[in-house]
Structure formats: structure tokens, C-alpha cells
């Protein structure tokens, strides 16, 4: 193996690594830097709150009043959930945390809807 060979190997390796880094930044970092997501809480058809879901934010409890009385919504680490509600089936509470854009928690008896704004991420594209 000559000196020129070694330079060549180093050059190809460098090109490959630089390319990988560029692609990584292009596709993966930018996906993490999306606009901060927002959640809206709707009670009986009226928007009650719009909350920023800050991924590094601390816990925040919100008391709201639905048709069946008080309920507690908890926001933490970019996620949101119905912590307590006094509806009979507790479906909204059991659904636990949601964080993806497009996800929704519905408390039908309480007429409370928690929706994370934005389109649901695409699973796949076919042509």
C-alpha cells in the first residue's frame, strides 16, 4: 500500500462521514426542532384553554369544570393527560398521557376534549 493509497482511503472515509453527518442533521435534528406543540381544552364546544406543551417544562395542574363537575388536567414534559375526572367510566383518565400531534382525549359525559394541535404524523407514504 502506497502513501497515495492511504490518503485516498482517508479522503473517502472523510467524505462518507461528512455525508452521514450532513444527512443526520438534515433529517433527524430538524425533525426534533418542530414548532412547539399546543394543546386545546374544549368544554361543551367552547375552547377553554390553549396550552404550550413545552418538552422541558415542569408539572402544571389545571382545574376545569365539565358538565359533570370539576376535572384536573395535568401537563408535564410535553405531554398532557386527564388526571382526575368524575365521570362514571373514567375512560379519559385511563387513556393516560398523550403527546403526538393529532392525539385526542375525550371525556364524553363531561363534554371535555383535550386535543393536541397539528396533523398526526404519517406512518407511511405509498405512490
Amino acid at each position: 500500500m502506497t502513501r497515495a493509497d492511504k490518503v485516498l482511503i482517508a479522503a473517502v472515509l472523510l467524505c462518507a462521514l461528512l455525508g452521514l453527518v450532513t444527512i443526520y442533521r438534515h433529517f433527524f435534528i430538524s425533525a426534533d426542532q418542530l414548532l412547539p406543540t399546543q394543546a386545546t381544552i374544549t368544554v361543551a364546544g367552547k375552547v377553554l384553554h390553549t396550552i404550550d406543551l413545552d418538552p422541558v417544562g415542569g408539572n402544571e395542574m389545571m382545574q376545569i369544570t365539565g358538565r359533570l363537575g370539576p376535572a384536573t388536567v395535568e401537563v408535564a414534559g410535553g405531554r398532557i393527560r386527564m388526571r382526575e375526572a368524575n365521570c362514571p367510566e373514567q375512560i379519559c383518565v385511563k387513556q393516560s398521557w398523550i403527546q403526538a400531534p393529532g392525539s385526542t382525549i375525550v371525556c364524553l359525559p363531561g363534554e371535555i376534549i383535550i386535543h393536541i394541535d397539528g396533523l398526526a404524523p404519517v406512518d407511511a407514504v405509498t405512490r
Binding site: M1, T2, R3, A4, D5, L8, I9, V12
Partner: peptide
């Protein structure tokens, strides 16, 4: 046209 590469380097250029 060159003399500085061994078969290893030329083969690598071929692969690339």
C-alpha cells in the same frame, strides 16, 4: 496515467 497508486488504491477508486 498515474504511478502513485497500488492495486489497493485503484481498486478502491473503482469501487467508489
Amino acid at each position: 496515467k498515474t504511478t502513485c497508486f497500488s492495486p489497493l488504491g485503484i481498486s478502491l477508486c473503482g469501487a467508489v
